[in-house]
Design a protein around this nucleic acid. Structure first.
Lengths: 220, 220
DNA sequence: TTTATTAAATTAACAATGTTTAGTTATGGG
DNA sequence: CCCATAACTAAACATTGTTAATTTAATAAA
């Protein structure tokens, strides 16, 4: 069965190549401005070949989107730990925004690109996305049990925090933060995260400060 | 000059008709899925006619986008008053999200659609958008002078608040809040605004409550 | 080795898109 | 009535996603 195996490998290598190339192109010009022919030309195959590996252009998107959700999940897993839930949230938020700004096209595909809504469930990116969301929820819960957050509906608070970082990331990605000079963007982001946690916890100011001083650099 | 005048009227009426029709179609299927031919067919003219009134498809988008910014600005003007800056913020936030969810296609064109970045400045939708942002900033300033907010960089706080409501609106519009049952969305939004202001101001809890009780219904 | 079968890739075409050009029809002034 | 200008359209163009027919390459069978 050595041959069959090799063929399978070649097949998945080809898929990888297409995905990698597509992503590189999307990143530069955006999903809608890249054609199947562009991708084909880059990898020096005919356009029709791509259809041997992906049903259509959308399926390339779906695959990349799922990849993105997996990447993000891994990232969240490493930055969210419940020992110090507040610090954890801060790091998670920073990681989230960093991910979005370092992989704008991934982020775009995941959260900003309008896709046929039917397929959102079919492509079950929800499953893995939901896992990320659960991480966040647990973190929020921990904050509540430790008395760092007011006791509210966990879903509401989690959604709020998610909305917050998503808002920051997506405004910047879409250059709607264009009002601010480029070099201020980084401070802006840090400041925003500050704002949320700061006013959240003037009571717990000491705890907050401790986590702020240990925080890692945002590299954007 | 009566004739010339009438012609001009007819010309702008035609523009209106095209815009109105385009918007209706965009709302249903999204900008990228609507063709010039679709619009033309709807208004019973030939596709080429549209190019007599708009340079290209994008210019229709730009025009609608500018319209959107004006609408939003008017809305913000009426809901933001500085007598009670905290209540003002809350109403402004609600109005913002309502606008986004009631006019998803406008909102999409304004903040979520990827457009050629060059044209962002050319189409100077910035001017009017900036005015909205200034309203918000003034409101934030007022909160600070009244001691309702910690004294931080006004831009950072304003951007934060903007990010927050934008995050909520855009996640819902892109059905990324799909994890929650439809009927909970409304509560979710209210709860989120609660969250932000609540934990913001447990100190000023009385003020907050006053504005919460008087708040108008979100009709989504 | 030669032939048959299967897989991989390409060529050429399709319909649909945004856009342009050349031409036609209508309108108003002389 | 004739002409100039405006309004409009038909027909074409290049480019898109996608597919069907066909060729080429790789494997299995003889």
């Amino acid at each position: 069965m050595g041959i069959k195996e090799r063929k399978e490998n070649e097949k998945s290598e080809m898929k990888e190549l297409i995905l990698k190339t597509a992503m590189k192109l999307f990143l530069d010009k955006g999903f809608n401005n890249i054609t199947i022919r562009n991708i084909a030309e880059k990898i020096e195959y005919s356009p029709a070949t791509i259809y041997l590996y992906f049903k259509n252009k959308d399926e390339i998107l779906y695959t990349l989107r799922r990849e993105g959700f997996e990447k993000l999940y891994e990232l969240q897993k490493t930055s969210l730990n419940t020992n110090d839930p507040l610090k954890s949230l801060l790091k998670g938020g920073e990681a989230y925004i960093s991910f979005a700004l370092e992989n704008p096209e991934y982020y775009d595909l995941m959260f900003m690109t309008r896709g046929p809504v039917k397929n959102i469930k079919e492509t079950n990116f929800c499953d893995i996305g939901l896992k990320s969301y659960e991480l966040l929820k647990n973190n929020v819960k921990e904050c509540m049990t430790q008395g760092l957050f007011p006791r509210m509906d966990v879903d509401i608070v989690a959604f709020s925090l998610w909305s917050y970082v998503h808002g920051i990331a997506s405004l910047i990605i879409r250059s709607r933060g264009i009002i601010f000079p480029e070099e201020q963007v980084n401070d802006m982001i840090k400041g925003s995260l500050d704002f949320m946690l700061k006013i959240n916890h003037e009571k717990n100011w000491d705890i907050y400060n401790k986590s702020m001083n240990q925080k890692t650099e945002l590299n954007i």
